[in-house]
Design a protein around this nucleic acid. Structure first.
Lengths: 195, 195
DNA sequence: GTCTATAATAAGATAGAC
DNA sequence: GTCTATCTTATTATAGAC
């Protein structure tokens, strides 16, 4: 943590603190000390505490969405798009564990305008999952069901991997993402040869 | 909110505030004003702020577990036990929406001993799901898979219903619990007549 | 770009009267 | 069981020097 880019240092340190202690329990002083500067110096880089939180939440959402778009690019088949979306979402929530946990637990720390910005980005992201599920049901590859409820169910399950995932655990990120993808695909697909 | 039982009033008011604003963002003063008393009077009923949080988290875990045990009582068949466990867990997370959201987002507000108490209760509860899944796999009713990962996946999905559930929404609690139960059962069952 | 010093406020908690 | 008054400390944020 040299002084190469202090703003990035402050951000990285804040991600660490907000993840461990929570946003409200972390003070500007905590962030300053962990960054190796005085608390007043924080205000040269960020206009206030909320600004740091907003920066974290915004870049996380941008990266999450960019990640999804990149993975989906060129894939046409609906089932394959669903597999890819679930896999990419799950993997991201293990790769960026700290930031996504902050994103999910600290949105209340934002004032109205910033809050609306993040919620809007999130809604647009969620909508992409809903479109795929809806199309799958229309095409008859996915079983008839309430596509909104299905999207909430799948997204929240794959988001929550960030809560229990342990980088030192038995299974690799890739293995877990694969189990999650198979699990959800099996649950939404039409059953072919059944009773 | 009469003065029938001020301790219960304080608790109910705190559930409301912690749910809306978060534990750290809610002050003793906020709780006092919403309860209709002065902030010093809070300390007659609770020894400190954390004590209120702990009371909420503890009773929620006790009720959650009691609810599961009550529903499972007398059911022997593994698939039926799994259905019941998922259904009861999901329903509880809609019935007690505010408290479970606090439980999931504010455990960090507890000091070490209290934290350990809640985590232990939670682990014991989770273990009951793991046992059912493990037995189902051993019996050949559920598909071969990592039973721990499956338990995390299912529990976190059904827990997260509390985040998006809207009491004024299109579907009833019962309908949602049914969709969730069917979804997860389909995902873990062995496929019988497949390719 | 970072420092020291300080303002302004709000927090959790206690003492003691009624 | 609830009140008023107060202690102590921590917080976010700003002013101005270097």
């Amino acid at each position: 943590m040299a002084k190469a880019n202090m703003k990035e240092t402050i951000k990285a340190v804040s991600i660490d603190l907000f993840y461990k202690k929570g946003y409200f329990a972390s003070s500007i002083n905590d962030i300053a000390r962990a960054s190796g500067i005085q608390k007043s110096s924080i205000y040269y880089h960020y206009s206030n505490k909320e600004d740091i939180l907003f920066d974290i939440l915004k870049t996380t959402m941008i990266d999450l969405d960019a990640n999804l778009e990149k993975q989906l690019k060129g894939i046409e088949d609906t089932e394959e798009r669903m597999r890819t979306a679930i896999h990419s979402h799950t993997l991201f929530h293990m790769e960026r564990q700290k930031e996504v946990i902050i994103s999910d637990s600290e949105i209340r720390g934002l004032t109205v305008d910033n809050y609306k910005t993040i919620i809007k980005m999130r809604d647009e992201y969620d909508h992409k999952f809903q479109s795929i599920i809806k199309r799958g049901i229309d095409e008859g590859v996915f079983a008839e069901n309430d596509y909104k409820i299905l999207s909430y169910a799948i997204i929240t399950m794959c988001t929550a991997v960030s809560i229990w995932f342990n980088p030192q655990g038995r299974l690799s990120k890739e293995e877990i993402a694969q189990i999650y993808t198979d699990f959800n695909l099996k649950a939404i697909k039409v059953e072919n040869f059944q009773e």
